[in-house]
């Protein structure tokens, strides 16, 4: 089945879940509601998109979109070589959506990364802890309202001296 067929079938079968379908620069993008993502991806996987190439998130604070956060899944079908982007939208008040770790093991670390950098929770993830930043890090650095230079975490360390007398020359 080609991607176009699969997509039209998806839209037929899940009219409530699918918000929109767009195309940009030759890429198909499927916009869906967050809570339905697991059902949809299970279907897409069964239809041939067997490889989750990438999972990431976008903060739509100034870009605009259906909701504040979009989690995007880049799927690949090894059979036909077609790619598909699925974007799941979730609101700021309740940033959570089902985990797809049960479908692809690669989602484990990638969902942890999204959690670490955006604070999006994945329900059903076996071990949702920070992956990139230290455990005591506060805030979610890739959100648009987090300053690039951080909140002083990079200057908060003890100063060590040599412990011996050294004359200043």
């Amino acid at each position: 089945m080609t991607a176009a067929n699969i997509l039209s079938k998806i839209k037929e079968n899940f009219p409530e879940a699918v918000l929109d379908m767009t195309e940009f620069a030759g890429e198909q993008i499927l916009h869906v509601r967050g809570p339905d993502i697991l059902t949809l991806l299970t279907k897409l996987k069964a239809d041939g998109f067997n490889f989750l190439a990438d999972l990431t998130a976008i903060d739509n604070l100034t870009l605009g979109g259906y909701e504040r956060f979009a989690v995007s899944y880049h799927l690949l079908c090894h059979q036909t070589g077609e790619r598909l982007t699925v974007k799941a939208y979730i609101p700021e008040e309740k940033p959570s959506l089902p985990s797809v770790e049960s479908l692809w093991k690669t989602a484990d670390w990638q969902e942890r990364e999204v959690f670490d950098l955006y604070g999006i929770k994945f329900e059903g993830h076996p071990n949702l802890i920070r992956i990139m930043n230290p455990d005591d890090f506060e805030g979610y650095p890739l959100r648009k309202d987090y300053p690039r230079l951080g909140r002083k975490e990079r200057s908060d360390f003890p100063v060590v001296d040599r412990g011996i007398q050294k004359k200043k020359s």
Binding site: L117, R130, I131, M132, N133, P134, P141, L142, Y146, R148
Partner: peptide
């Protein structure tokens, strides 16, 4: 992991 996390993606936005 994360011992070399340097904020590439944040930097890209600037």
């Amino acid at each position: 992991i994360g011992y070399l996390h340097s904020g590439f993606e944040k930097l890209g936005e600037d």
